[in-house]
């Protein structure tokens, strides 16, 4: 109530230190995150990089959007869109299910040092860069003579009779992307579930034991429902990344033979934008990507609100 009596000027004077601590960063954020939005005007132009003044460009309305959605480049754009969505949905589902299962299994380990060691080992790949990971992936998937252990194991187990060139088989690319993400992030993703599990009241388990519940009953009826809010909020948050299936792994492992199932929107943007200087097409692809993911996040947020779960925004 004191606040309303003070004039704005005295408030500003008394809070000068807080202002010094925040306003420069506000300007910084506006420059680096909002100013680039003016670049979206390129989407409505036949953009020529050599013309410096934005207003001297040739304005073409929605021609570029039309070109991408139903025109000359539409085949390629929708193919890349499909790959982006397919790869990330597969990565997401596989990642979620496996992380929850692994958390449940780790939670059952009563030997603390053993649990620690396993956890630390499974966190390790998270700290490797994608360049290193793709190098490992391509080695593991190579022919047996080049160190392709996966071929060796599959042949020993009798699943295949001769080595498979996984990376040259376009139909396996989505699986390779999802598998690489799984290997890299599985352990890391269990951290938050395991933290949620330690917060479960132990008397719940004791009461269930009294009633004759076995291990699986306890997992299914106590542990899983208790971490449900965590699962839901993480799932909602991850929808924001639905069109961010990544760039590096596709760029490093993609090659002529598997491009049909490997190329994502980000690769499309890079190819048209940076390599071919077709900035307008690349910008349109970027806008469509942002637009679609904002719509998805908004929709999921709305549904989550309706279902009575925590909203994100």
């Amino acid at each position: 109530m004191q606040k309303s009596k003070k004039s704005l000027w005295t408030l500003i004077k008394s809070q000068w230190a807080l202002i010094v601590m925040s306003v420069p960063f506000l300007l910084y954020r506006i420059l680096f995150s909002y100013v680039p939005l003016t670049g979206w005007t390129m989407a409505f132009q036949n953009y020529k990089p050599q013309i410096r003044n934005m207003w001297d460009q040739q304005w073409v309305g929605f021609d570029n959007f039309e070109n991408l959605i139903s025109g000359v480049t539409s085949n390629q754009f929708w193919r890349d869109f499909r790959n982006t969505l397919g790869q990330s949905v597969l990565t997401l589902i596989l990642g979620y299910v496996c992380a929850i299962v692994l958390s449940l299994l780790l939670n059952e380990v009563k030997n603390v040092p053993f649990k620690r060691i396993i956890q630390n080992i499974t966190y390790m790949p998270h700290f490797l860069s994608w360049i290193v990971v793709t190098g490992l992936v391509s080695t593991m998937l190579a022919l047996p003579t080049s160190g392709g252990i996966i071929n060796v194991v599959l042949m020993k187990l009798g699943f295949i009779s001769e080595p498979v060139l996984f990376l040259n088989d376009a139909s396996k690319f989505w699986g390779i992307v999802a598998g690489s993400h799984l290997w890299k992030e599985l352990g890391w993703n269990t951290i938050i579930y395991l933290a949620a599990m330690t917060a479960i009241d132990p008397t719940l388990y004791e009461a269930a034991e009294m009633d004759g519940a076995n291990r699986y009953h306890k997992m299914w009826h106590i542990t899983l429902p208790s971490i449900r809010p965590t699962i839901v909020i993480l799932l909602i948050m991850s929808t924001g990344y639905l069109l961010e299936s990544g760039f590096e792994i596709q760029y490093f492992l993609g090659r002529g033979v598997n491009a049909k199932w490997a190329e994502t929107i980000d690769i499309f943007v890079l190819r048209y934008g940076i390599s071919q200087s077709q900035y307008h097409l690349a910008t349109v692809a970027g806008i469509l990507k942002t637009g679609i993911s904002v719509i998805v996040v908004g929709f999921v947020n709305f549904i989550a609100g309706r279902l009575g779960s925590d909203k994100l925004i």
Binding site: L31, P36, G39, G273, I274, A282, G286, T290, I313
Partner: peptide, 17 residues
């Protein structure tokens, strides 16, 4: 600040900046 978590101008506009 929070709004910037939900949109991104994209690779090309950032490159131009």
């Amino acid at each position: 600040f929070v709004l910037t978590m939900y949109f991104n101008a994209g690779m090309i506009p950032n490159y131009m900046l």
